[in-house]
Amino acid sequence: MIDVLYFAWVRERIGLPKERVETQAATVADLVEELKAREARYAAAFADVSALRVALDQELSDFGASLSGVREVAFFPPMTGG
């Protein structure tokens, strides 16, 4: 089980901030494909992953990264702090 978090417009498109996902996905990209196959709202949110960023256990990562040992995955648009 992995905690999957969504922020900003990704959260709005999917319609929830956080969920527990039962997955055997080996990489972030595999997890994205599983989520996209679920429902149209996921497919819409993940339509263009170049517009998204991903963090694994609260560290910025990339879509090719392994999910081995990861407890928390977060998807969000590019950050706009400052």
Partner: peptide, 27 residues
């Protein structure tokens, strides 16, 4: 802080709310 701290800004006016897009210059 602009592009590596996880904050997201949204601007709210009377008729809409829009997420602020990240700027290429900031990256």
């Amino acid at each position: 802080l602009k592009s590596r701290a996880p904050f997201w800004k949204r601007e709210v006016t009377a008729d809409r709310a829009e997420w602020v897009a990240a700027r290429d210059e900031d990256e």
